[in-house]
Design a protein around this nucleic acid. Structure first.
Lengths: 224, 224
DNA sequence: TGTTGCTCAATTGTATACAAGATGCTAGTA
DNA sequence: TACTAGCATCTTGTATACAATTGAGCAACA
């Protein structure tokens, strides 16, 4: 049950159903899931250890907020770790996986012209997961995922509605990444991935809006 | 209470009092700390989310084991992230902090010739903390700490008993790091830190011993 | 002897009860 | 009106009880 709870809750947080900063009470979840507070408290502790739930001085729980400082901190870390992933993947990535990369990138190009941007951001996410998974490192996967979790819904929402001029640039940069993998050039793979993500994240940061407290303002809220 | 529990437990794990792979039962901790199972379970979940406690298929809890694969995975990640820390620290590190670095390195040199190696490894740890803390990034600090936690007692024990030929090399490499900081050269700071840690970790991996299952064998166990 | 099945103890999961602390509302007072 | 004291309510923390599952030991049987 605890496993189910943590899964459902983290998904709700990652997908934005439970919006950042939203207060969470145990009795609320008790009604929601129909189990007693004991397993709910444990699930919340798990998510707290994972960084998805914040606890204030009065022990109240909130969905982890997304602030400008937060994003500015997280972005370079992810860029750095994905760069490492690319470096470690370069010597071991196989032909199938490279073909998957090419395919995803082509579908992304197609989606940019024909389909919606949601599709683009989804394909983009898949693209990056390929070489991360190619590295047989549970810890690296977990670390990147836990850092990405906190912002994944941002990547999914923002990239859809914001100015899309970055997408063709990303597609070209992806080609550079693929070339590095084809050449099995670990150094270049790391450099290109890191440079790519650094650019994307700077762009995201520039196009994101924040309130006076530094909290990220969701597009949905803007639209209201 | 939960806070106290997690603190005491994680310290016991990090310091090696609770050795890796050791099974942990709730009733045991109940007697140990004199509180009921409810807060204990929550503390264990927090540590589980943090990666210090492992849970098997039968829900039994163990202190996180240290395996050869584990170390081989964790080391490059820490090296990468500390490199990033150095890069981000370079533009903002101040004179006091650089002087602290110089001082720690000199004391390390002194300790190498005069005092015990325990002192060396402690000073070494302090040295690295200086520039990590110089970066005002709670997330980077937390990420590095959580990765280091799992191996910190290894750094504290192994480096003491193993061949000490690496220490003078480390001291020289530290000087290179300090020079990069003095020059405010972010690129060089990252490179030198990463190269330094990569070397140290390769050395640690070479001098560590593992059993057939890949579990790390503690020096204490060897001595028995 | 080896194996099967049973029972009991130990461990973990969940529910509930009560305690402690925080919040908010109301009424009374200046 | 503004402010404060006090009470009711809500939320969280801890303890305890019971259920479910696992593991070990033992006995019966082929």
């Amino acid at each position: 049950m605890v496993g189910q709870l943590t899964h459902d809750l983290s998904e709700a947080i990652v997908k934005g159903t439970l919006s950042p900063g939203r207060r969470i009470t145990e009795s609320e979840l008790e009604n929601w899931f129909g189990v007693s507070r004991a397993p709910i408290r444990e699930a919340l502790r798990l998510l707290q250890g994972d960084g998805l739930i914040e606890v204030d001085d009065y022990k109240r729980k909130y969905v982890r907020r997304i602030t400008k400082k937060n994003l500015a901190e997280v972005f370079p870390i992810i860029a750095c770790l994905e760069g490492l992933a690319a470096r470690l993947a370069a010597p071991v990535i196989n032909g199938d996986q490279i073909r998957t990369l090419i395919d995803l990138n082509e579908r992304m190009r197609h989606a940019y012209f024909e389909a919606g941007y949601e599709q683009c951001s989804h394909l983009n996410h898949e693209f990056h997961r390929v070489y991360i998974k190619a590295v047989d490192s549970e810890i690296l996967n977990r670390t990147i995922k836990s850092l990405t979790n906190g912002i994944s819904w941002l990547l999914l929402t923002n990239i859809c509605y914001a100015d899309s001029e970055t997408i063709p640039v990303s597609i070209e940069e992806h080609e550079g990444i693929i070339e590095a993998f084809e050449a099995k050039d670990a150094e270049r793979a790391e450099q290109t991935v890191r440079a790519h993500l650094t650019r994307v994240y700077q762009w995201l940061l520039r196009y994101s809006t924040f309130d006076a407290k530094g909290d990220y303002i969701m597009d949905q809220q803007l639209a209201e």
